[in-house]
Every structure is written in structure tokens, then in C-alpha cells.
Design a protein around this nucleic acid. Structure first.
Lengths: 193, 193, 193, 193
DNA sequence: AATGAATGAGCGTTCATTCAT
DNA sequence: TATGAATGAACGCTCATTCAT
């Protein structure tokens, strides 16, 4: 039931946008009555929030899988893994992701997102501190912030408006180069002329 | 009157969020009657859209001023100018900016935003093509996309959650280094150890 | 519920006129909430239209019952039956009838009325054509038009402003004479001196 | 100014219907400001009422002109004059007439109409009483009522939906026959076979 | 547990009317 | 006298939520 309702919520959100998403419509699409909906969820927002938590959970699961590879490899491989992790995470459910970003008003529901972002950024910072000797930036915290925002924004935008560069691998390539040159400026990285 | 209403709209949006923004509330805060509101704006969304257009216009004006400096200077100066332009643009009205990004559902109203973004990205691409000989990335279009998203996301996030790094200049410094190393990887740039 | 709402609509229409008929008022009089009203009727006009269709349906049912007698009787009896049918139809719900005629703006909702009128007029024409040999008017279509309008208008006006002549039977008597003399001019009909 | 406003009211009524007729629209069409409108008319309904009074006045002027001929001629000529008077009166401004009948809610504004109708009916009654010796109906009041309603309804309906029978003179012919046979049943009237 | 009819606060919007200029 | 910007009560309608069955 909970699953059915969350799936219906996702479908309605994607199809009709946040403003067009009513509890009666969700119940209808789920094939149950509104009353049943309210027996499993206290209010409309709890549905959306739960859906968001699950979605973020899935993205993080995909991300974490690759993110763990970072420790035992050299920097080029680590950065590439990071970028690939971001791309895969964004590819989990792009339409749902878009509706969360573009349609849902941000209140408490976005705490999950902020926590996930914070966790990634902290992980990145720890990684950079552990590799301190070889990386250029002095302030690992600031570097983690910049690298995270850079990778997140680029993959996010690419998923929504440059999907062609996702499939041909060019985005991963170039974004890896960008991050790598920032972190290891002395080495000649990537495909410079 | 138009000004008063738009100011009231901005205040209500920031204070109550998009969903709490009603035309009667706007009129009340503006100190006029709903009827007057509807003599100047055909419907609720037109207020929000107009406010957004003005805000984007102001951001772009601030941005463009610095952006023009890019042509006649060397790459380090040009990239620094770009980053500073982005920071200043985001500092125009951070609270209003946040409400647009976090609260307003994206439909036609975001066309202005998309146009502005597109214009900047194209400008950046032209800039990179003109400097082709000295820059590393082969695909100026992709590079412009990455640089734009990187700078936008970093300044955006910094304005909203790392304002301390804006005032001490460290964000500008580091972001400039990041972009510069991407574009000119062979030179030793910035403050590496 | 549908019945309750339609009854309430009728009461409010009669009591307050069309302009004073609001959906909240109807709901209030019906003893339900506006929300319920909108669960059974898509909008305000649909209530009025439905009420009108039922009213016309009832008038026609009453009318048709007598109208069927026309075929197998002589002309005087047939014309009297016609007039009596009209009087009875108009007596079904005079106050509601008045409000439809005097208060409700005529748009699509009056299509039922026009159809009913058209059906009666066509029936009358068929009747006249079948009795062609004995009736005076050459053009059965025109005669049907005149007879229909004459009977309709007279009974209508009588119901609304000469109800005394309805109860004493004088109106039926005289109107029958009028129609009969038109259709059968050579016979001495009715109560001439 | 008063003329301009009334003309504008008529135009708006015909074009937009009663519900679409707003004082601001009237003022706009009249080329003056709403304020001016309210300097000559105390409220919206007074415009409509005044327009109705004038329209009824014009119809009655046209009607009366022919109606006066009734006295000094024989019955066939008198009845024909009556019918022609009705037709001409209805042809004065058919579109405006329609909008009054079909769109304007009947309150005090229709008093003019009721007075005019009453005057005609009384006139008819007097005429019938004066011609008592030659006419059939015993009750001149009832006969006047029937003749008036018959002629009014037939010309009214013909103007709105059988205009072809107005121009070819058939309606006048047949309606005259109808009334004449009612009033003078013993004579062979009209074009019987 | 499941239903879905019923609720009603509150929304966006209109328009007859006013009144300072 | 003429203006038209300003008014605000009131409308039709929506939808998150409840509760008797």
C-alpha cells in the first residue's frame, strides 16, 4: 500500500507538477480511496517527503558504491570514479529528480538533500586531507566545497539539458580533467593539446 | 503602484514562501486593495514573473559590467573578472534569489532565467574560441558549459551557505584558480604549495 | 443529494432571483457544504440547466399525455384537448416557470425549451396536415406556428396574471373557440351570440 | 452625454449580453470615463431601465400610429391595422428587443413593459366594446386579453425566428385571418379553400 | 482495514461604485 | 464638469482533510 501510494505520488508529480498533485488524484492513480491514503500518511507533504527520502537514498546508494573506490586508487582514477558516481546517481530517476528540484517548495523536506550533500562534501574533504601531500589546494574544506558543487552542478545540468554528452562519455572525460587539474596542477592531465 | 506591488510581492514571497503568497496578502502588505492589484497585473503569476524578470535583469546588469572586461586582459585577469562578476550578481538580492530558486515552480516564468544563462554560456564560448590558441579544452562549447555551471553553482551555494568565504575573498581566489588551471593547465597557476 | 440540491436551487431561484442565486447560498439552503455541491455538479449553471431540463420534461410529460388524444377525435374535441394540455403543462410549477422565463439569461440552457417547442409545433403541423381536408389554412406549417404561439402565450400569460380565468374554465373555453374558428371557419363554433 | 451612454449601453448589451455588460465597458464604448457615467445615472440598472423605457416608447409610438386607424374603418381593416402595427413595433429594434426579453432579469424595469401591454389591452377592450354588436366574444376583456397575447406572441416569435414570413406578408395575412375569424365567426373571412 | 461522501476555509478574481484631483 | 485610480464585498470554485459506515 505504502509502495503503491508512493509510486502513484511519483507518477502524478512527474505528470502534473507539484501544484497539480492532489491527494485525491494520488489515491485515484494508486487505485485506492483517499481515506486509505490518510491511514498511511498523515498529510500530503509526508508523501512527498517520504518519496524524496527514498529517492535521495537511492541516489546515495548508487553514489556510495563508486565513492568507496576512491581510497585505494591513484588520483586520476579516484576523480574519475567520483565523477562517474555523480553521473550514475543523477541517472537513477531523472524525471523525478527534476520535479523535486523544479517544482517542490523547499522546507523541511529538503533536509534529507542537505544531509546527503553534507555527507558527500565531508567525505570529499576527508579524502582530500588524506591525500594532502599530493594535492594543490591548501584549504581542504574549501576545495571539497568547490569540487562537490562543480561536479554536482555539471552532472545535474547535463542530465537535464545535455544528455548527449552523458552517453558519449565526453562529459565525464572533461569534468574529470577539470577537477584533476585543479587538484594536481603540476602534472599534465587529461587531453591537452 | 507597480513598484509598490512588486516590492510587496517580494516581501511576501520571502516571508511566507510561494504557497503563502496570496493576492490579498500582497495587496494588504502593499497597502492597497486587491482591486488595484488587478488593475496593474492581470493575475497572480504575472507579479511573480515580472519580479523575476527584473531580478534577472539586475543580476545580468551587474554581471555584464564586469563581463565586458574579459576581452582586453590576460587569462588570469579575465577569469578573475568572470568569477567576481558572478559573485556580485548573486549578491544583488540573495533572499529574493533564494525564494525564486527554492519556492517558485518552474514554468514559463523561468524562460528569462534560461535565456540569461544561455546568453552567458554563449558569451563564454565565444571568449574561449577567441582565445583558442592558449586554452587547453578542445571543445569550446563543452568547456563553456562546464565553466559556467561551475562558477554559477559555486557562487550560488556560497551566497546561500558560505557567505563567510565571500567576504574574505577566499572563494573568488580559489574558484579563479580552479577555472584557470582547467583552461591553462601548463602554467603553474594560483597559490599551489 | 442531487434532488436536495436541485430543490434548493429552485427555492433560491424563486426567492432571490437568478442574480441572487449563489452556489454558497444553494448549498446553505440544501443544508450541505459547497464542496458537496461541486461533487455532484461541475458548476453553477449545470444546476440551473439540469433544473430546467427536468422542469421542461415534466411540462412535456403532462402535455404529451393529453396531446395524444388528438388523433381519434373530432376537431372541436382535439382543439380543446390541445388547449387543456397547454394549461395543465403551465400549471405544473408556475413559480419556477416564471423564474426561468423572467430571470435566467438564455444561452445553451434554453436549447431544451427550443427543442420542446419545436417538437410540439411539428406535431401540430403533422396533425393539421392529416386533417387537411377539413381545415381552412392552406399552409399547415404557418398555421401550426400561429396556433402554437397563440396557445402557448395565452396559457402562459393566464397562469402568471389571470389565474382566475384558469380555474373557472373560461380561458380554456374561449381559447378553444378562437383556435377552432381559425381552423374551421365555416362551422359556427363556440358560444357566439 | 446621456444619449452617448445609452447608445453604448445598447451596443454592449447586444454584443455581450446582460452579464457581460459592465459599467466600465459601457463607459469605454461611450468614450467617457466611468465617473461621468455616474454623474448622469445613479447606477447600472438605471441605464438599462432608461434604455428600456425609450425602447418601449419607440415601439409604442410606432404601434399607436397605426392603432389610431382602428376606429373609423371596418373590422377587417381594423384587425389588419392592428396586426401591422404589432409587426412594425417589433421591427423597431429587434436585436435590442431580443436582449431585453432574453437577457435582462425582470424587476421594476419591466413595469414600463407591463404598463404598455396593459394600455394596449385596455385599448383593445374599448375597441371591442364599442364594436360589441358585430363581434362574437361575449367577454370583451377576455377577448382583448386573448387577441393581444396572440398578436404579440406571433409577431414577437416571427421577428425572432420566422423573419421570412414577415417580409413576404404571409404572417400578417394569416394572423389577420385568425383574429378576424375569432371576432367575426359568421362571415367567411380570409383565404379559405 | 478500507471507503468515499462530506466538509469548509480560503483561494484568485470581478465589477459596481466612490472620490480626490 | 470630467476623470479614472482605487476600493472591497462577494463571487465561483478547489482541495487537504475527516469520519460515519
Amino acid at each position: 500500500m505504502v509502495e503503491t501510494l508512493l509510486e502513484a505520488t511519483a507518477r502524478v508529480l512527474v505528470r502534473e507538477g507539484y501544484e497539480g498533485t492532489t491527494t485525491n488524484r494520488i489515491a485515484e492513480v494508486a487505485g485506492v480511496s483517499v481515506g486509505s491514503l490518510y491511514q498511511y500518511f498523515p498529510n500530503k507533504d509526508s508523501l512527498v517527503t517520504e518519496l524524496m527520502e527514498r529517492h535521495v537514498g537511492e541516489m546515495m546508494a548508487v553514489f556510495d558504491e563508486k565513492f568507496e573506490e576512491l581510497e585505494d586508487v591513484d588520483m586520476p582514477k579516484a576523480v574519475r570514479a567520483l565523477v562517474e558516481a555523480a553521473v550514475r546517481a543523477h541517472a537513477v530517476a531523472p524525471e523525478l529528480h527534476r520535479v523535486f528540484v523544479e517544482q517542490v517548495p523547499r522546507y523541511g523536506n529538503f533536509d534529507v538533500v542537505r544531509e546527503a550533500e553534507s555527507r558527500i562534501e565531508k567525505g570529499l574533504r576527508g579524502f582530500l586531507e588524506r591525500r594532502g601531500a599530493e594535492t594543490a589546494p591548501e584549504d581542504a574544506g574549501l576545495a571539497a566545497f568547490l569540487v562537490f558543487r562543480t561536479v554536482e552542478a555539471s552532472t545535474h545540468a547535463a542530465v537535464l539539458e545535455r544528455s548527449e554528452h552523458l552517453t558519449d562519455g565526453r562529459l565525464v572525460e572533461e569534468l574529470t580533467a577539470l577537477v584533476l587539474r585543479y587538484l594536481l596542477p603540476r602534472t599534465t592531465t587529461g587531453h591537452s593539446r
